[in-house]
């Protein structure tokens, strides 16, 4: 429970709603400016063909996306370890574990299925 460890234990409904800290203009502005930068750079990298190697570009823009998702979570969705007594964070971590398993598992299994089971063009030609 979210009580009494930071001065005002009860939720003051005149100022904020549902146990979230009140939003501030500074928070939204910081999040917005960071998001603009973190969006512009990947678009520039791809449209300006900054790297010759596709997989380098892919890894870099995936990194930017991950950072931008964290920025949105913190500044727009007001995620922190204390909101709702930590239950939102717990649910988020659980979901992230499932998302990672779903994505990496699907890609890994299906990639190997493709490379091991798909007939190559050569095999298809010699088939009767």
């Amino acid at each position: 429970m979210n009580h009494d460890d930071h001065g005002h234990g009860h939720d003051d409904h005149d100022h904020h709603d549902g146990g979230h800290a009140p939003s501030t203009l500074k928070g939204y502005a910081t999040g917005f400016i960071l998001s603009v930068i973190l969006t512009a750079i990947p678009f520039w990298l791809v449209m300006g063909k900054a790297f010759n190697n596709s997989s380098t570009t892919a890894l870099v823009i995936l990194g930017f996306a991950a950072v931008q998702i964290v920025v949105h979570m913190v500044y727009f969705l007001h995620m922190n370890a204390r909101s709702e007594g930590g239950w939102t964070m717990l649910a988020l971590i659980f979901t992230l574990v499932l998302v990672v398993i779903t994505l990496s598992g699907s890609l890994w299994v299906m990639f190997h299925m493709n490379s091991n089971m798909m007939p190559t063009m050569h095999e298809m030609k010699v088939r009767p």
Partner: peptide
């Protein structure tokens, strides 16, 4: 009773997390 809104926001967050799984698939 003095903070009944917490339940709704937490529940809505759980819905969003399940929606997140839909998008993950």
């Amino acid at each position: 009773e003095h903070h009944p809104e917490n339940g709704t926001l937490l529940g809505f967050w759980l819905y969003l997390m399940s929606d997140c799984l839909v998008f993950a698939c």
